[in-house]
Design a protein around this nucleic acid. Structure first.
Lengths: 217, 217, 217, 217
DNA sequence: TATGAATGAGCCTTCATTCAT
DNA sequence: AATGAATGAAGGCTCATTCAT
C-alpha cells in the first residue's frame, strides 16, 4: 500500500463518517479532507469530484458492510424462519444505530434511501436488493407457514418487507423526533429491546395477513 | 385580500412546494421567488429571512393540513378502535402521498422529521405531538382490548405507535427505493391498498403484543 | 403644527440621535424611522433621501445648538480673554460630551469633521466658521497680550486654535481609546476637570508662543 | 517569495490603502481585490473573512510602522526631554500625514481610534500603549523638571499626553475642515512647521501645569 | 504524484429607494 | 398627505472545482 492508496483509503474512511452524519449534499469536502489530513484538491485528484468520492464510499460499503453484520448474524444451522427474521431485524438495527466503527454503513444506506443522490441504482444493485430478497424469502416462508401462498398476489410479501424495513429505518430517520417525543424512552443500549419489539410486532402482522384475517384458526 | 396578503400567500405556497421538494437547506429563495413571481428581497421583507419563511410555511401547514385530512377522516360516531386506526393510517398516508394541492403538507413534516432544522420543536408542539397522542390513545385501547394493560411498561404503546408511523413514513421517505425495487407494484391509486395492509399488519402486531405472545400458538 | 410638521420634527429629532451615534453612513433610515414611529418611506417623502434628512438635521442644529451652549456661556460683561477661553472650551466640551438632550449637536459636528459627507461646506458656513472666528479672536487677544502681534504670520493664531480644538475633540473622537488606556481616569462628571486642564495647558502654550520662546520675560 | 506570499502581500497592501481611505466598514473587499488583481474569494481563503484581513493589516502595521518612523527618530544619545518630545511629535505627524508608502499606517491607527472595530484591543496592546507609555515618560520628566511631581495625581501627565496626541491627530482627523477654514495655510511640506508649533505649544502647556500656574504671572 | 493557491458561481441578507395606492 | 409593499443593486461569504507548480 503506497502513499497514494493510503490517502485514498483515509479519504474514503473520513468521507464515510461525514456523509453518514450530514448526508451527501450538506457534507463539505473541506471537513472530509480536514479529518483525513489531506488538502481539498485530493478529492478531485483521486475521485474526480465530490460525487466520485461518494460513489467510492458506497462501493467500499458494499464490500465490507455485510461482512460485519450479516443478515444471519449469529444464527445456527437450521434456524427457524422466526429466528431468521429476528436476526435480520437485529443486524439491520445494529448497522443503522450502532455508534462504533464503521457505524456509517447502514446510516449511509438509510440516508440514500431517504434522499437519493443518483447513486441509488448502484446501491440497489449491490446492496439493497440482495438484502431485500433475503428478507422477502423469510417473509414468504412465514406467510406460507401461516397458510398464505403469496403466489396470487406477490405484493403481500413485498408490503410486509416494507413494513419491517420501515419500522427499522424510522428508528434512525426519525431518531430526533423520537427523542423529542419521549426523551427518556431509549438509549444506545436499547437496540435489543427495539429488535424484540419489531420482531414480535412483525410476526403478529405477518400471521394476521397469513391467516387472511381469520385469527387463531 | 390586498396585494400584500397576495404576495405573502404566493410566497408561502411556492415555498411549501420547493421546501417539500428539496428540503430547507437545499431550497433557494431565488427559486421560491421565481415561482412566486417576486424578487428575492420580498422574503426578507415579509418573513425576515429564509428561516422565517420556512416557519411560516410550517405554521400555515399546521392550520390547514389537519383540516383537509383529519385523523378521524370519514368516521362515524361510535367507531371501533380498529376503525379509528385505519382512519388514522389512511389520512396519514393521504397527507404524505397525495399529489394534489396542498400535497406538500405531509412531505414537509416527513422531511423535518428526517432532517430537523430547528423548527422541530414548533412542529412537535403544534402538529406532531397531538397526532402522536391521538394514535397512542388508539393503540392503548387496542392493547387493553387484547389483554395487555400498558401500565407496567408504557413503552409498549410508544413502540407500537412508532411501528405504525414508521411503516407509513417509509412509503414517502423510501418512495424511490420502493419504486426501484418493484417498479410496477404501486401507483397513485394504491393508497387504499397500502392503508389496508398497514392497518391489518399493525393490528396483528398489536394483538401479538397484547397477547404476550402466548395466544394462537 | 399639523401632523406633517410633527412627523418631520420627530424624524429630525430621532435622526439627530442616530446620526450622532453611528455617523451618517452607518446609520440606517430604518432605525431612525423606528424611533420616530414612522415608516421608512417618510424620509424620502419629506426629505427626498437619506442625505436630505441629514442636511435638515444639520440645518436644525445650526439653529439651536449655539442657543443651548453659547461660546460665552455664563460669562459676565467685561470678562478677561482668559475667562473667555475657558468658557469657550467648557461649552465646546459640554456640546460633545454631554449625555443629555440634545447631546448630539456637538457630536454630529465632530463626526462631520472626522468623516465629512459633503455637508461640510454648509456646516462650515453656518456653524464652524463663526465659532472658529470667535476662538481665533480670543487667541489673538491673548497673543497680543503676551507680546506677539500675529500680523506677520497669521498662521500662529490659526495653529493655536487648531491646538485647542484638537485637544477638545480628542476627548470625544478618541473616547474609546482613552477609556482603554485609563479605564478609571474619567467619568461623565469630569468635564469640568478636563476643561480646566485644556484651558491651563492652552494658556501656557499661547504664552510660550507669544513670548517667542523667551519665557518669563 | 512564492505566489502565495505575493498575493497575500498584495492584498495586505491594497487593503491598507482602502481601509485607510474609507475605514473598515465602508471599504469593500471587491475594491480591495480589484486593486490587488485577485478575486473576492482570495480574501476568505487567506484571511478567513474581511475582518481577518483587517487584523492582518494592523499586525503588519505594527511590525513595520515604528520601524520607518520610530518615536526617537533621528535623536542623538543624551537628547534632552524637550528634544525627545519634538521627535515624538514629528514622527507621529509623519506617520499620519505622510503621503508616501506606506502612508496608511498612521491613518489606520487614527481611524481605529475614531471608530473602533474591535481590533482596538489588539492595537492598544501592540502599538498604542507602548507609544503612550513612551510619551507619558517624556511628559513626566518635563513635569518634574518644571517642579511638579506627578505622584499625587497621575492624571496630570495623562491629560498632557492626551493634549499632545489630540493636537497631532486633529491635523489628520480634521484635515478637511482645516483645509476648508484656511485653504492656503498648509501644504504637504508643512509637517515641520506643525511639529514645531505643537512642540512649543505643548512645552508651554506642560510648563504652565508644572509651575502650578504660578510662574511668570 | 500531490498540493497550496486561485477561481467564479451561487447563496442569503441589507439597504435606500420607488411604486401604487 | 402618507404609507405599506416591492424593488434591485450591492455586500460578505461558502463551496466545489481548476490551476500551476
Amino acid at each position: 500500500m503506497n502513499k497514494n492508496d493510503d490517502t485514498k483509503a483515509r479519504l474514503i474512511e473520513s468521507a464515510g463518517e461525514i456523509f453518514a452524519q450530514h448526508g451527501f449534499r450538506s457534507a463539505t469536502i473541506r471537513e472530509i479532507c480536514r479529518r483525513a489530513g489531506t488538502n481539498v484538491s485530493s478529492v478531485n485528484y483521486h475521485f474526480r469530484d465530490k460525487y466520485g468520492l461518494y460513489a467510492s464510499v458506497l462501493e467500499s460499503l458494499h464490500q465490507s458492510a455485510v461482512r460485519k453484520y450479516p443478515p444471519d448474524l449469529g444464527l445456527k444451522e437450521g434456524a427457524t424462519a422466526e429466528e431468521k427474521l429476528r436476526a435480520f431485524i437485529r443486524s439491520f438495527l445494529l448497522r443503522i444505530l450502532d455508534e462504533g466503527f464503521p457505524a456509517w454503513h447502514g446510516k449511509l444506506m438509510a440516508l440514500e434511501i431517504a434522499d437519493p443522490t443518483g447513486a441509488l441504482d448502484q446501491l440497489v444493485q449491490n446492496s439493497i436488493r440482495p438484502m431485500h430478497e433475503h428478507l422477502s424469502g423469510i417473509v414468504r416462508t412465514l406467510l406460507q407457514k401461516y397458510d398464505l401462498l403469496d403466489e396470487k398476489n406477490s405484493n403481500v410479501s413485498f408490503l410486509c418487507a416494507m413494513s419491517i424495513v420501515g419500522q427499522c429505518l424510522h428508528h434512525f430517520t426519525g431518531r430526533q423526533i423520537i427523542a423529542a417525543l419521549c426523551p427518556k424512552c431509549f438509549d444506545s443500549t436499547d437496540i435489543e429491546r427495539i429488535a424484540d419489539h419489531i420482531t414480535r410486532f412483525s410476526l403478529g402482522g405477518i400471521r394476521e395477513l397469513g391467516a387472511g384475517g381469520l385469527r387463531c384458526k
